[in-house]
Design a protein around this nucleic acid. Sequence first.
DNA 1: CTTCGTATAATTGTATACATTCATACCAAG
DNA 2: CTTGGTATGAATGTATACAATTATACGAAG
Lengths: 226, 226
Amino acid sequence: MENQDLKHEVTDKYSLRGRVFHRIREDILNGKYKDHEELKEVAIGQELGVSRTPVREAFRQLELEGLIQIIPNRGAYVTGIKVNDIKDIYMIRSKLEGLCARWACDNISKEQLEEMEENIYLAEFHAARGHMEQMAELDNRFHNILYEACNSKMLEHLLKDYHQYVWRVRQKTLSSSRGAVSNVEHKYIMEAIRENNPDKAEELANQHMINAYENMVEKGLLEMFE
Amino acid sequence: MENQDLKHEVTDKYSLRGRVFHRIREDILNGKYKDHEELKEVAIGQELGVSRTPVREAFRQLELEGLIQIIPNRGAYVTGIKVNDIKDIYMIRSKLEGLCARWACDNISKEQLEEMEENIYLAEFHAARGHMEQMAELDNRFHNILYEACNSKMLEHLLKDYHQYVWRVRQKTLSSSRGAVSNVEHKYIMEAIRENNPDKAEELANQHMINAYENMVEKGLLEMFE
DNA sequence: CTTCGTATAATTGTATACATTCATACCAAG
DNA sequence: CTTGGTATGAATGTATACAATTATACGAAG
């Protein structure tokens, strides 16, 4: 049991089933398979050049992740995200990102802090020029650094799941004006962590998520979801 | 898509694979399969009277739930819970149960409130007599009512997962003296919800989890986990 | 005695065959 | 035209066969 801390995302990444799983997951998150679309085992198997077996096993996992719903003897359907789900996720993430920022105060490494700083500096550049794609990428990376810095595999795993889960929504709701503001909030969070002020870091991270959600509501970006 | 809100826990409960999944899950949570024990596909299949296929699919799901770890081409091993994981889970649950109690203020039904009241009343009876098993059962039920009352499938699902996950630990760390105190805390949480005081309900639920964790630490109940 | 390599057995990974369930089309009765 | 029943096809559920990988045992070389 020397691989004690290896998690499934790592261990199965290079197996056939693992690749099938990640591939279907990507295709759902990227919108290739639309909400409520039925996924057929043979069709996907043929497309990926594998038999039904690994596809089926991937389906079971995707179901547990909430990305698809399997109705016994009927089929697998892409789960549609509903407006209420989005609100719930952002409120849950608000609490968890707060906890994450709090724990990061004690556990962040010098390298991680430096990468955060660089991230924020770069984001200022792209924000000024309206480079949406780079902003999204930097935002992703900022949060992932934070997740890794909290030194809790448990929390990191949970937050990464949610982060990916709302990726579909964020891609559709990217808003240019929020980018710069969001980056300033990142900066304050980082400073609170650097000052080792857990209360402040938690509060700022809490509010960061709430602001992100309220921005989506204000701009009417959620109306496209039913 | 009329079964929109049906979740996998419900839909697959009566399929063969579903039964296999739930059965293995039970056996892990009840301690039949010990930490780090290797689970063989054929052996379990024979024991349950099924082939490897449904067993394998169940394994994939159990891996995502974190109950087992699959090492490709090697085997499936029951995941050992570590002390740090327990702390993380309780801190995460603290935040989420707080959120849950907050949302329950607006969404709890009259029936749910009544069941809570009955639950607490009964628990007083059993606490006074040191009926450990009934206390554990009532505690379980109290939290499940709370989860259902928050009116968020997202949060309910998450909390139920964690609740079951630490069930293994709780069975080993049942402490007689905490039962009565815990029940009083339940009572205060319920009253805050009934008064529709979300801030108070959240704070009390937060503290309830922290107290439960600190009780385990104080009594040295976690030392058995490595 | 240790170490390396090979052979063998056991286990998992994948593909395929068979069984079962469900949806659709079609036709007949009303 | 509507309703209901049956037949057919297509998809999923399960079992089994085969392939690939890994662990173990054994023996020979050093």
